[in-house]
Structure formats: structure tokens, C-alpha cells
């Protein structure tokens, strides 16, 4: 089973997302802030990270920057799930290794799962 790490601070969202992922046949772990997310992925390397941007204790960009510095982490595919989406931010994320950027209000959970499937199957 493929492992997905959700790094998201909003409870409702990560609950819904993980529910959908589990139904989709994925193994899910959740971290509620950036630092916890980094710690978690260092312990157990996920197949994909669903990463929020605005979070306490290291935001999404900072998480990506740290992942890039770590050999074990820099190649993990990342999909950003955020509620902002300005071109300058999207460019920055893509340069840090993000494969996609999804705006939460424009995508439903099911569509997020489809994107995950596209990345890692």
C-alpha cells in the first residue's frame, strides 16, 4: 500500500481527506504542522506528501526547502493543497519540487485523490 503523508493544520480538512484516501486504498498519516511533518517523514518516508502552505511551525515553503536539503526526502513527490494560489507562489513551489498545486476551494476531495493516483498510482 502506498503511503500518503498529509501535512495540514485544519482538522476538518485532514479528516475528510484522509477518509477519502483510506477509501481509495492508501495508507495515511497526518501531521498538524510543518515541523511535525518533517519529523514524521524522516522517520517513515512516504510515497507522496499532501502539503498545505499556511501552517504554524514551518510553513509549506519552509518544509519543501528542508526536504530539498535532505537526500532521502528531496525526491518525494509533493502536491500542494492550499487556499492561496498566486502565480509567484506557484512558481516558487514548483521550483522547490512540487508536482502540482491545488486550491482547496476549486477541487473536491475526490479530485484530489485522482491527482494522487496520477502521481503514484
Amino acid at each position: 500500500m502506498k503511503k500518503i503523508l498529509i501535512i495540514e493544520d485544519e482538522e476538518l480538512l485532514y479528516n475528510l481527506l484522509s477518509k477519502k484516501l483510506i477509501t481509495g486504498g492508501y495508507d495515511v498519516s497526518i501531521s498538524k504542522d510543518g515541523q511535525k511533518g518533517l519529523d514524521s517523514m524522516k522517520k517513515d518516508i512516504p510515497d507522496l506528501v499532501l502539503l498545505d502552505i499556511i501552517m504554524p511551525n514551518k510553513n509549506g515553503f519552509e518544509v519543501m526547502e528542508e526536504m530539498q536539503k535532505d537526500e532521502r526526502l528531496k525526491n518525494i513527490p509533493i502536491i500542494i493543497i492550499s487556499n492561496s494560489g498566486q502565480p509567484v507562489e506557484i512558481d516558487k513551489a514548483k521550483n522547490l519540487g512540487a508536482k502540482d498545486w491545488l486550491v482547496k476551494t476549486d477541487f473536491e476531495p475526490l479530485e484530489v485523490i485522482k491527482k494522487v493516483k496520477k502521481q503514484i498510482g
Binding site: 476538518l12 480538512l13 475528510l16 487556499n83 492561496s84 494560489g85 476551494t105 473536491e108 476531495p109
Partner: peptide, 14 residues
């Protein structure tokens, strides 16, 4: 964007 959209996306997804 984040502040406005967060509750909206929560409602949407739910």
C-alpha cells in the same frame, strides 16, 4: 485568500 477560503473549502468538502 487563505482566511476567506478556509471555511469555504471546509464546507465544500464536507
Amino acid at each position: 485568500a487563505h482566511q476567506l477560503r478556509t471555511p469555504l473549502s471546509a464546507v465544500k468538502w464536507t
